[in-house]
Design a protein around this nucleic acid. Structure first.
Lengths: 123, 123
DNA sequence: ATTCGATATGTTCGGCCGGGAATATCGCAA
DNA sequence: TTGCGATATTCCCGGCCGAACATATCGAAT
């Protein structure tokens, strides 16, 4: 289905500035916006408050040279949001990064997981 | 110098259980313990309170089948700590994972960074 | 003009996470 | 046997983060 699961596997974060990073959360948010055409809907989908979703979008739009998300107020639907070409590029590259990481690191990840205690056996 | 820098590049976290993960922080802590032979010293080195360092160690020792760190109280130096073979294996695999991720993802990471606004020149 | 739903933004409030201090315990060495 | 330094553990407290409310604003459609 979709990637970037939180409760298992590996998570990748690109540290862009000392206090701004791009990880699974923002990537999923971008994807949700692209699919739903709305910041609010994307936020609801991942059980995130609109305020927080909007703050993440605002943060992303700040750190990149061009905004990743364009939003519009008003209209028949009340408003809308969509990814810019830059936003699509960032999302695509992040998803590809996730895939490559999962593949390139499967040996090490497996080696580490094999040493963990829970699940795998009964309990 | 050393790996696993926090303020730049990419960070990898292996989610082991819904609320326990292995990331750069714990890896650096393991490395510090291996080098200093002390939880307290490793914590000081990375400006982390002893309490927090000890809690992280305790957490790691719990999620893995065998402890990653063995600690001893008393003695001429007051006490000591060292990595078990399992601990060394985990640390080695994590470091190798970091390297592989950095290499395998350099294209995507570069593509994303190239779109950011700040510091792209030397600095 | 009124309605509607989403964007945009401020404010408040509670939880919880981590730091710091305090305390106990251990074992070797002097 | 006393001292030392690190491990082990508890308690308190302030700060920060996010949730939840509360508004304000916009624009197309009715």
């Amino acid at each position: 289905m979709e990637t970037g699961n939180k409760t298992t596997g590996v998570r990748v974060r690109i540290v862009l500035t000392p206090d701004v990073a791009l990880g699974p959360g923002k990537a999923d948010l971008l994807e949700g916006i692209a699919e739903s055409g709305s910041i609010a809907a994307a936020g609801r989908r991942m059980k995130m408050s609109y305020k927080r979703a909007w703050m993440l979008v605002e943060e992303m739009n700040r750190v990149f040279r061009e905004p990743l998300v364009l939003s519009a107020r008003g209209g028949s639907k009340g408003g809308s949001a969509q990814l810019t070409p830059t936003g699509q590029t960032v999302l695509e590259n992040y998803r590809r990064l996730q895939d490559r990481v999962a593949e390139a690191g499967q040996g090490e990840i497996g080696a580490i997981r094999a040493l963990t205690r829970d699940m795998s056996d009964g309990k």
